[in-house]
Amino acid sequence: MKVHILDDWFDTLRGLSCFSKLDRHDVTVWTDHISDPAILAERLQEAEALVLFRERTAISAELLERLPNLKLISQRSAYPHIDVPACTRNGVLVCSNMKADGPNFAAAELTLALILASFRQLPQQVQSLKSGNWMSGVGRSLRGRTIGLYGYGRIARAVAGYADSLGMRVIWWASKDGRAQARADGASVAANREAFFAEPDIVSLHLRLKPGTRGIVTAEDLARMRPDALLVNTSRSGLMGPGVLEKALELGRPGFAAIDVFDEEPLLDPSHPLLNRSNVLATPHIGYVTEDEFEVQFSDIFDQVEAFASGEPINVINPETIDR
Rank of each mutant, 00 (worst) to 15 (best):
L6Q: 14
D7H: 06
W9Q: 14
D11M: 03
T12H: 07
K21T: 08
R24D: 08
D26W: 00
V27M: 03
T31V: 01
T31K: 00
E46Y: 13
A49H: 10
A49V: 15
A58E: 08
L64H: 07
E65V: 09
K71P: 13
R76Y: 07
Y79S: 05
I82L: 04
P85K: 10
C95A: 07
D101A: 15
N104T: 00
F105A: 09
A106H: 07
A108Q: 00
L122M: 09
Q124T: 13
Q127D: 13
G148A: 12
Y150V: 04
I155F: 01
R169C: 08
R169P: 11
W173Y: 11
G186T: 00
S188T: 06
R193P: 11
A195T: 08
A195E: 12
D201P: 14
S204M: 04
L209W: 05
P211N: 10
I216C: 10
L222W: 02
M225T: 00
R226W: 12
L239S: 05
E246S: 00
R253C: 09
G255S: 13
D260E: 06
V261H: 03
V261G: 03
P273W: 01
R277L: 12
H285P: 01
V289N: 15
F294R: 07
V296G: 03
D300V: 05
F302I: 15
F308V: 12
E312S: 15
V316M: 08
P319G: 07
D323W: 09
R324E: 06
